[in-house]
């Protein structure tokens, strides 16, 4: 049974009232949704809030899921809309300094979780967290519309046609936003690492 078919089976069971199937469905996708939320919000606390809203939205609309697309595609459509709603409610600072502060919080939070994974090299884990934190800071410096295009293209592997449909813009506009975002990120990378 493919992952999509497993999703469909879990959805059917959840709609029939199976709390266990619903829990399994959430656990299967929570890592992807959390990382999506983290890259868009830039800090773990907002990422958790966004993830909570996403899964509540999924639950409220689960009976409308027709299986015409994969569940993950449908899920990220909801996540995309929830991210925009949250950004409108909480206009975040786009300054690099504030983003780096949030990234520092993330590193500290991850250090506290090191005890949970004793088999992993602490130094390698620290390097990984620092790279992620830097990436978060650079992403946070982008305007929301550019951040969303980068997220959808680089991490969710959507086509520009799909991004255009999702954001109700033309494909050329999506391409221009993507290119502009890459140039901005390149500049930030050079600023941070002298690249």
């Amino acid at each position: 049974m493919s992952l999509a078919e497993q999703d469909d089976a879990l959805i059917r069971a959840a709609l029939e009232g199976s709390a266990r199937s619903w829990d399994q469905l959430v656990r299967r996708h929570e890592t992807q949704v959390y990382n999506f939320s983290l890259r868009l919000t830039g800090n773990p606390a907002d990422a958790l809030d966004l993830m909570q809203e996403v899964f509540l939205g999924v639950y409220r609309n689960l009976h409308r899921f027709r299986g015409e697309s994969q569940f993950s595609t449908w899920l990220f459509r909801i996540a995309h809309n929830k991210a925009i709603d949250m950004a409108r409610r909480r206009p975040s600072s786009t300054s690099l300094e504030s983003a780096l502060e949030d990234a520092g919080d993330l590193i500290e939070a991850r250090w506290q979780q090191l005890d949970d994974v004793p088999e992993q090299d602490p130094q390698a884990l620290l390097d990984e967290r620092q790279r992620n934190a830097l990436l978060l800071a650079q992403m946070a410096a982008l305007p929301l519309e550019q951040r969303l295009v980068v997220e959808l293209k680089v991490f969710q592997s959507l086509t520009f046609e799909e991004i255009a449909e999702l954001q109700d813009i033309s494909a050329n506009t999506a391409k221009t936003r993507f290119y502009t975002a890459l140039r901005r990120l390149k500049a930030l990378m050079e600023q941070d690492h002298g690249m």
């Binding site: 929570e30 958790l48 639950y59 990436l135 991490f155 990120l185």
Partner: peptide
């Protein structure tokens, strides 16, 4: 830049209250 972005390592989900059915 694209390669730099792809160095992102997926983060583990912290303990959170999953919405109950």
């Amino acid at each position: 830049t694209h390669a730099h972005l792809r160095t992102w390592q997926p983060q583990r989900v912290p303990a959170w209250s999953r919405p109950a059915l």
